[in-house]
């Protein structure tokens, strides 16, 4: 297992990141029909994605379906193998980074304690034949971290923390509402005392009154347990509320990355503007439904230049030919549009 330090990937020494993703790529092969099934191309689901995640930070990853936001986080956690790139992770905070991309399955095991995931669907992500106690205890048992009385106590403790009664331990998932199930999913992720948690559309399936409770819970737990989140979501209101910084993805790439308020108040990339402008505002006196032309780009058949150019009102000949790089517009604000200044 190789150990890296901050100079190996160019991170900030003043504020070293917990996780540094560099040029992450995940391609899925497209095969021809027939017996041979030759590889005829790639779906570039994630294409040279780079960002840092700092300690105690919530980074939002937003975009429309198929933009690669879920594939990005799943690849980082090695639920999928890397096609290319690196994800340097420093769970101990001592400047010794390991690269998720090059670890063997065996080497990954201890790191999985520090990096956990909360899933979207509170109905399909819990085994219906296990009790709540069993579901929450399972990670501890697998990693051999606790047994007997200590195990029971740890499970009780975490259930209380997420707002569930320890008496519920003997019940099965079907006896719980959507919001409660999502709390169980959160308990299962946090029982390992992780440093880094990926929440993949963790509140999307919940009704708004319950959603607010779970958002508050995630925020409280972050402070209490010193967590860092990558928060994958398509609901911009939720993202604005909970995230410190936001990365906008389009067709497998990050097109803009900025502190939350900066991004919402001064979006630089035309796609970010389209996205923000499309979100309905709950105010009957401000009716602003833009009839936007165009469809999300097909990741298996991307145009040569900027993937957004076919939908972009400002696109020029340059945009259709050359693929724009993510540029630093101001110290914390990155955008990948050659005309971002304008």
């Amino acid at each position: 297992m190789n150990i890296y330090n901050i100079d190996d990937f160019g991170g900030s020494a003043v504020n070293p990141p917990l996780l540094a993703v560099r040029d992450l790529c995940k391609y899925f092969p497209i095969r021809s029909r027939g017996l041979v099934r030759r590889k005829v191309g790639d779906v570039k689901a994630v294409d040279h994605v780079s960002f840092d995640l700092y300690r105690n930070e919530t980074l939002g990853l937003v975009g429309e379906s198929g933009c690669g936001k879920s594939t990005t986080v799943r690849t980082i956690l090695r639920a999928l193998d890397f096609t290319g790139g690196h994800a340097y992770f420093d769970p101990e905070g001592n400047g010794r980074y390991v690269d998720f991309g090059e670890l063997t399955a065996h080497e990954l095991v201890p790191l999985r304690r520090a990096a956990q995931m909360i899933f979207q669907d509170p109905f399909s992500s819990l085994n219906p034949r296990m009790t709540i106690g069993g579901i929450v205890a399972e990670p501890l048992v697998i990693h051999g971290l606790a047994r007997g009385k200590a195990l029971e106590e740890r499970v009780d403790e975490i259930l209380v923390k997420v707002g569930l009664k320890p008496e519920y331990k003997t019940r099965y998932p079907h006896a719980f509402s959507g919001g409660q199930r999502q709390r169980i999913g959160i308990a299962r992720a946090l029982v390992m005392n992780p440093k880094f948690v990926v929440a993949d559309e963790a509140v999307s399936a919940l009704d708004v009154s319950v959603q607010a409770q779970v958002i508050n819970l995630l925020d409280d737990l972050k402070r209490e347990m010193g967590l860092s989140y990558i928060f994958v979501a398509h609901d911009l209101g939720v993202v604005r509320h909970i995230c410190d910084r936001v990365a906008v993805m389009y067709a497998g790439r990050i097109v803009e990355l900025a502190p939350t308020e900066e991004l919402f108040e001064r979006p630089l990339h035309p796609y970010t503007r389209l996205l923000l402008g499309s979100a309905p505002i709950p105010d009957p006196d401000r009716r602003t439904l833009p009839p936007n032309p165009g469809e999300v780009a097909d990741a298996g058949n991307l145009p040569a230049g900027c993937a957004f150019a076919p939908r972009c009102p400002y696109a020029t000949a340059v945009c259709r030919k050359e693929r724009p790089e993510l540029r630093t517009m101001s110290p914390l604000h990155l955008a990948s549009c050659p005309f971002a200044e304008q």
Partner: peptide
């Protein structure tokens, strides 16, 4: 939407995230 009268309607509108920019706590219906 502008002046809900029933506590449930009021609570639903309050718990919409992002309406007021970032707030410390999102009001929710218990």
């Amino acid at each position: 939407i502008k002046s809900p009268r029933h506590p449930y309607t009021h609570g639903l509108l309050e718990s919409l995230p992002g309406l007021h920019g970032r707030r410390e706590r999102l009001p929710s219906i218990r």
